[in-house]
């Protein structure tokens, strides 16, 4: 995986806002060390929407939290996360002092995370949430609240009504959109979203995804969209990274992921996607179960479940470029067409 930088030409051709190198997140437990992010490298380009997909327990949320150095205790985050601000300054997020980190979060990178529906203090009106955030970061409250009102209108909410409400007076979708507005009120460069639509119904998920695309264009944001829902993220993301067992197995532009997925796991994920148009017999669950973070298989972590696996898979595969915009960590990617794609996901 560490060869990705050299091999991925997209990293050099565009301007990365975040460079993640050798990122590890570990939890010490009685039965051993649990590595929930295993030596991950990733470049996030300025202005893109990158989707990160993976099943439950693949390390998605940990990746999201580590971007803000906010992995919960007693997790230990090591490696480098270099943030390049628009004025050319570079900082290592994991190296920041406590106060610098407090400023950095929400001003440069902010986050909307899982459980958005309970992200507001139930005994405080929405307006106060926005005001206290502005005050805590020393932003002028007057112009800040105007920006908040604009953001809320951009998200199709009535600013006055929402700001004067208490959290319990808003619906799930409204709270979700209000939280996105709250995340953007300090004009951050990057918005990390961890399963932002998980608690919402399908219609609301679709409409929030289309809102996010508009917001990105209007505010020049870089977005990291983390989800288990592959068909959803393909409607939004420019690039998609597939996480399996705490590391990336494939990273490519959305079109390639959908049409020419090069990793057996990506293919299996697509084939397992429920689709109303596909006959039931064509849907394939993925056999076996996800590896235990304490005891990840040697070599390619997917080889125990992979139909293409051979002896060579006991060695760690490196990230190889399939095309200019597609990279995969698999020894057998050239034979990938042995696994047919049975379902189609629309972009």
């Amino acid at each position: 995986m560490s060869n990705q930088e050299a091999l991925d030409p997209t990293a050099s051709s565009t301007d990365p806002i975040l460079e993640i190198r050798n990122l590890n997140v570990q939890f010490e437990m009685d039965r051993g060390t649990s590595r929930v992010i295993d030596d991950v490298d990733l470049d996030i380009h300025r202005g893109e929407i990158i989707g990160i997909v993976g099943e439950s327990g693949s390390g998605k949320s940990m990746l999201a939290s580590s971007l803000l150095d906010a992995v919960v205790e007693p997790g230990v985050t090591t490696g480098e996360i270099i943030y390049r601000s628009p004025d050319g300054e570079s900082i290592d997020v994991l190296d920041l002092s406590e106060e610098a980190l407090r400023k950095f979060r929400w001003e440069q990178i902010s986050m909307v995370f899982q459980g958005a529906l309970s992200s507001f203090n139930p005994t405080m009106a929405m307006r106060e949430h926005f005001e206290e955030t502005l005050e805590a970061h020393g932003y002028p409250v007057g112009s800040g609240m105007e920006r908040a009102a604009n953001l809320l209108s951009d998200l199709y909410l009535d600013p006055d009504r929402v700001l004067d409400s208490y959290p319990h007076e808003l619906s799930g979708g409204m709270k979700q959109r209000a939280l996105i507005a709250l995340a953007l009120v300090l004009e951050p460069e990057v918005l990390v979203m961890d399963e932002p639509t998980a608690a919402l119904d399908l219609l609301m998920q679709r409409s929030i995804v289309s809102l996010l695309a508009d917001i990105r264009d209007k505010y020049d944001l870089t977005m990291v969209f983390i989800t288990h829902d592959l068909p959803l993220v393909t409607k939004l993301a420019d690039r998609i990274g597939v996480l399996y067992a705490f590391e990336f197995v494939e990273l490519a532009d959305t079109e390639s992921i959908l049409r020419e997925p090069a990793h057996p796991y990506t293919r299996a994920l697509l084939n397992a996607t429920p689709n109303l148009d596909a006959p039931l017999e064509e849907m394939r669950p993925i056999e076996g179960s996800a590896p235990d973070p304490v005891n990840v298989p040697e070599g390619c972590s997917y080889h125990e479940r992979c139909p293409l696996a051979t002896d060579i898979c006991r060695d760690q595969p490196i990230f190889e470029q399939v095309t200019d915009t597609q990279a995969v960590a698999c020894h057998h990617w050239e034979d990938i067409d042995e696994i047919p794609l049975t379902t189609e996901v629309d972009q």
Binding site: K103, M111, F113, G115, N121, P122, T123, M124, E132
Partner: peptide, 24 residues
């Protein structure tokens, strides 16, 4: 969850202790 968000938003400890934890 709202406590985690409050911390990420960088609110002062005092405010979190009184307005978030204490009150609720």
């Amino acid at each position: 969850d709202y406590l985690r968000v409050a911390r990420l938003r960088g609110l002062p400890q005092r405010r979190i202790a009184l307005r978030y934890v204490g009150r609720n």
